[in-house]
Simulated scan of single mutants.
Amino acid sequence: MTTSEVLLTADADGVRTLTLNRPQAYNSLTVELKETLLAALREAAADDAVRAVVLTGSGKAFCAGQDLKEHVGLLQAGDPAPLRTVKDHYNPIVRAIVDMPKPVIAAVNGTAAGAGAAFAYAADLRVAAASSSFLMAFANVGLGPDSGASWTLQRLIGYGRAAELMLLGRTVDAAEALSLGLVGEVVPDDELAARAHAVAAKLAAGPTVAYAKIKSVLTVAAESTLDEALAAEDAAQGALGSTADHSEAVEAFVTKRKPNFQGK
């Protein structure tokens, strides 16, 4: 398992919690943190004992996005490609979140800005603390969106709202995020960790093999024709119909007991 001072990892109830741990810098993203997070996400995807993932931050922020001190250092040093981190780090991280074959819950505990917000958008579910906020800060520093935000945000709240948040670069508080559909739930700050874990643990106890297919079918449907979506659904149902989890669910229904899913 990946261990690092900049990323804390904890396992319980089939849930792996990954905590960005640079609180003094609002969990802003250095090369070290990005590489460590990417490795940890890939490890979680490959570990059958991990059935759901929670991504959160330590301290007062979820993630403030790119560490600007590191970025300024590259600019001042005359780096010919100071934003190659988009291709090298941000894009693979977002793919690892979106392609994770198990549910990913973002527990947004404070400010989520730039790439940090985009990581939350890429998750399957978002639970937010009452003091949390979201900021698409790219235009404020003369840049466009990255980390998949152009794809994920408009799928969550629509093109018009996504364009507004990106062009105006304004902060969205937790209450507005809930009303926009940007997050699914807002809880008191001191209840966030427990609530996110409870949601993840519930999913971890479920038919995770089906969850993986649900995620893949939704991704296909988001960018396909109806016929392509129907074909993807048919293929998924054909595969899931022969799983042990499906047989267990049917038997549990007939015998009126709670199913015991194994993710197989």
Rank of each mutant, 00 (worst) to 15 (best):
L8I: 01
S28V: 02
L33W: 05
K34S: 15
E35A: 10
R42W: 01
E43H: 01
A44P: 00
A44Y: 00
R51C: 01
V53F: 06
V54W: 01
L55T: 11
T56V: 14
S58A: 15
G59W: 03
A61C: 09
L68G: 05
H71D: 14
Q76D: 15
D79Q: 06
P80H: 09
A81P: 07
P82G: 14
P82W: 14
K87P: 04
V94D: 05
R95I: 02
M100A: 15
I105Y: 10
A106C: 07
A113R: 12
G114Q: 08
A115G: 13
G116L: 11
G116W: 10
A118K: 04
A122G: 03
R126Q: 09
V127R: 01
V127D: 06
S131P: 00
F134V: 03
F134Q: 05
A137F: 03
V141C: 10
G142N: 12
G142S: 02
L143K: 07
A149E: 12
T152P: 00
L153C: 08
Q154K: 13
R155W: 03
R161P: 00
R161V: 11
M166T: 12
V172Y: 02
D173W: 02
A175H: 05
L178F: 14
L178V: 09
L180E: 11
L180R: 02
L182E: 10
L182G: 09
E185A: 11
V186A: 11
V187E: 14
P188C: 13
P188G: 12
L192P: 03
R195T: 15
R195E: 14
A198E: 15
A200S: 11
G206Y: 05
T208L: 06
V209L: 01
A212Y: 09
K215H: 08
K215D: 12
S216Q: 14
V217W: 07
V220G: 03
A222M: 07
A222P: 01
S224R: 02
L226Q: 08
L230C: 10
A232G: 06
E233S: 01
A236V: 05
Q237D: 03
G238A: 14
S242G: 07
S242L: 12
A244P: 00
V250T: 05
V254F: 06
R257A: 03
Q262K: 08
